[in-house]
Design a protein around this nucleic acid. Structure first.
Lengths: 147, 147
DNA sequence: GCGAATCGTAACATTAATAGTTACATGAAA
DNA sequence: TTTCATGTAACTATTAATGTTACGATTCGC
């Protein structure tokens, strides 16, 4: 299956929004992420439900961030997206009758649960402010290189 | 995305094979994992390439395990399957021009790399013998309950 | 009010990845 | 020489993400 790239998408969008005073339209965001405005609305709508952004209709409307960059983490976004399933590998059957398969599932589930816990805890340590900061550094470096 | 369930499948298969003296046919294995014999051949073929099992054609042929249960780990099987990609979540674009997106990708890549490293290291600690043992316990418990 | 800009959303199409199926060739054993 | 088995190519089906089209609902500026 295709990978879910919404987390990466909304991060990209929300950081751009954080650098703007004015709201950004779905069209502009779509251009920026090389996708379609409807996809942007669909995805950003989930962030709105989670109270992370607001949207306004009509002239000079669009999307605006309404969250503290220091408090919102990658996990909050992942959560806002509905905590989509993380792994592309899974068990052949859930709740098998076969005891062998049960033992196999248990071992795999354990390992995946640990990896998931680590990932989630990592997500919780990264704030949007941190990412904005990282971007600023990249930007400074980029400008230096251009000289 | 549909999840890749081959690791779980081959583990199931190989543990059944470990309990048999005779080779098991693709048909029997397919029945056991509720799939198609061709799928079994395709998948087990990868394990054969890795030297974990052998196959024989013709009358009384089939699949046989040829590996030390104490030495083969989940990782070896994952590896034999070609180390399929683990995550169902990924970046919108690889190598984006946008510096914001680069910062986002870097943060996500980092987190995923750590989770992957943990998973792989977990895979390396679980041998087939351990799983067979776990199965034996489940079996004993199951028989107890039936009394 | 009118018209343009903009989001909201349903319905459908496309794409990508896994899994399943059909068909037939090849080889080994009874 | 027939039967049982794997080997493999080619095609189909399934599933989930993503993209597209179409149109309704709001809001702003004139």
């Amino acid at each position: 299956m295709k990978k879910d790239s919404r987390l990466s998408s909304v991060l990209h969008a929300i950081l751009h929004m954080a650098e703007q005073d004015k709201p950004m339209t779905s069209d502009v965001l779509a251009m920026c992420m090389k996708t379609n405005p409807v996809v942007v609305r669909r995805t950003m709508g989930l962030l709105r439900n989670a109270g992370l952004v607001t949207s306004e209709r009509g002239h000079s409307g669009g999307w605006r961030i309404c969250a503290d960059l220091n408090k919102v983490t990658l996990y909050d976004l992942h959560d806002a997206l509905g905590e989509p399933s993380i792994f592309a590998i899974g068990n052949r059957h859930e709740r098998p009758d076969c005891l062998v398969e049960q033992a196999v599932n248990a071992a795999l589930d354990d390992a995946f649960a640990d990896a998931q816990a680590l990932l989630i805890s990592r997500f919780k340590t990264v704030t949007l402010a941190k990412l904005a900061d990282d971007f600023a550094h990249r930007h400074a470096k980029y400008r230096q290189q251009k000289e």
